[in-house]
Amino acid sequence: MSGALSRVTANASAPALLALAVVIVALVAIEPALISASTGFNILTQAAVPVIIASGFAVAMLSGQLDLSVGATAVLAGVVAMRLQEQSIGLSLVAGLLVGCAVGAVNGLLVTRLGVPSLLATLGTLIAARGVAFFYSGGRPVQGQMPDVAASLNSSFLGVLSIRICLAIAVVVIVDATIRRTVWGRRVMATGGNPKAAQAVGVSVNRITMQALVLSGSLAAAGGTLQAYLLNSATPAGGEATLIVVIAGVVVGGVALTGGRGSVAGAALGVLLIATVTVGMNFIGVDSAYQRILVGGLLLLVVLTSAPQIARALRRRQGGDRIRTGTLDGSSQIG
């Protein structure tokens, strides 16, 4: 068990974990009643959908691509699923997921065929998906037709479990195992770690990149569709908030922004920690504005502390490895 835990946290951003731990301890000190089964249930409930989206996002990031379109894709899938729900559940679910495949495929084509940096390609599809979602919904929340389905999806069993929590756990376990234990997963890590070397040993880097981006889009859409069914409605706004939680969670959880290092389980842990803080703050009645400040600050903290020179200094203090002496980016040495 401790071995598994240390594996998950091996790459995690230590300063960010520390900051989150301090906040959590402070929250518990202010309100000891926070420690309860219902809080645990709330945390898992709040984290479930972002964790599903983050799993796909983490795979894309491990393969070396940043998928900024996940939030907008989730929102678009939700809107599509709700609008088609009156026709049939099957159509609504399939269409919701297809939205994700489509956005992921466009991202993949832009990146692999046209050589567009993923940052740029997914920024474009983010804006486009957001536009389509607003257009398709008329800018208003789309109400679902099946409140009874939403109610049964939301009902809890065994105290701390619900369907969404089980789905999230299943997604994390499967995707994490796929990355760690299958050849495909190794290829994803190799592609993200050193694309040239991966290509040289026979990995089709373009195909892996494409697949990772399609997976990222699909899981984002799955998360968005699930969210819409849970709420029995979908709003075209809010994709930005999802994106932020996912990015912050994944980088806190130790997936390297440059790819090739980290784990899906670590990413899930990062999202869970952020959900913990959010739930704690809500419980105490802290304004949501401060939650934004915290998440934004965390993001900047991780970027700052993962800077080559700072990360090296931190590692040195821990007596860790000092193998990486330079970076590929010339800008960081001279300036």
């Binding site: 940043l66 900024l68 940052l119 920024l123 994106l243 932020i244 990015i247 980088v251 922004l257 304004d287 949501s288 504005a289 401060y290 939650q291 934004r292 400040i293 915290l294 998440v295 934004g296 600050g297 965390l298 993001l299 900047l300 970027v303 700052l304 993962s306 800077a307 080559p308 700072i310 970076t327 980016d329 800008s331 960081s332 300036g335």
Partner: peptide
Amino acid sequence: IAVASGNPIIVTLGTQILLSGVIVA
């Protein structure tokens, strides 16, 4: 961005969230 060799989009996204939080607060 310069000191940490940070990714401009991630950094400015962080600033956007942080700052809008401060403004709302």
